[in-house]
Design a protein around this nucleic acid. Structure first.
Lengths: 166, 166
DNA sequence: CGAGGGTGGTTGCGTTTGCAACCAATATGG
DNA sequence: CCATATTGGTTGCAAACGCAACCACCCTCG
């Protein structure tokens, strides 16, 4: 109807939303590229699923946590964490110790073997990360981290409460 | 064994990898926060799954594409796209027209109703996006987009070939 | 033109996922 | 204290997922 170009059948519209400039879309592409590439490392070499790796990574960093902590921290659904934890426990990579102060929950920690695996993965993970971000200058890297954090805070404040999983 | 703090059982280690500073982790958190929040809009209000929305968004922007194009563009597996397309076709939101030049593939386009839904979602999606990024100054927004693009290119070049889906 | 390889798209299958219902234990409030 | 709500964690189930096998078709090359 308007006088713009294109001999479209009837409507001549501008795209209303250009995906390549749409933030959620771009973030998703970038995040899945990095996640999938990383996943190959710990899946093929150590048989860890993504949730399992997240549990291991969290315990590697924090030593002792509950499943609930891990879920909240890693933006995962509690059932996802529960299953990852059982699998890891059965493989002897983490250990569960009841909390006598509150017998609903349990403390989780890496076993020695779990930590050994963690320590094998970490350098690879860090290496991968540094290869990815090497296209940015050091200042840009810092800046980017800063912007990501602020956006995350913003997104979190807009999310309709505990609505968040992986 | 070393003289550092903590009365840990035996080892006294530094965390080797701090998740809060680990890029793939942070990107995942941010991406799933935004994706999930967005998904609520088009899932609850229009009954669209994430892949379905991506198909609609792509066709909204490009008017006519093949399933293959959409998959490549949206970083989705071709079976995911195939199923989303069938569902959308059955709901009358998109239309399939055989390509006589190559009868393996088919041209896909939004129907009028499909476009109506697209046009209802877009303002909401853009509104959500702008609320999220409003914590950045305009220059920061541009800069962030630039950095994301460069990181994406970098990650893509490191990914072991067509290894990428949602 | 006919055989062999490659490509767009679909589908069966086993696995993973998220949701919701549930269990056990703790907190709260009459 | 007992009833009720809440919370950490598990599990059944249905839906969604990726993979690989597959079908139809195209393209090449002998």
């Amino acid at each position: 109807m308007t006088a713009s170009g294109s001999t479209a059948r009837e409507e001549a519209f501008e795209p209303q939303l250009v995906l390549e400039r749409f933030l959620p879309y771009r973030l998703n592409v970038l995040a899945s590229l990095t996640s999938n590439a990383l996943a190959q490392i710990y899946a093929e070499r150590f048989g860890l699923s993504i949730p399992a790796w997240r549990v291991v990574a969290t315990l590697g960093q924090y030593d002792v946590r509950t499943a609930r902590d891990i879920a909240a921290h890693g933006v995962m659904h509690k059932s996802t964490v529960s299953r990852a934890v059982s699998a890891l426990e059965q493989r002897g990579l983490i250990q569960r110790r009841p909390n006598d102060e509150d017998r609903r929950e349990a403390w989780l920690a890496l076993t020695e073997e779990g930590r050994r695996i963690y320590e094998s993965i970490v350098p690879e993970a860090l290496g991968f990360e540094s290869r990815v971000i090497s296209v940015l200058t050091p200042q840009e890297q810092i800046l980017f981290g800063n912007l990501v954090d602020r956006l995350t805070a913003s997104a979190r404040s807009l999310a309709p409460e505990g609505e968040v999983e992986a």
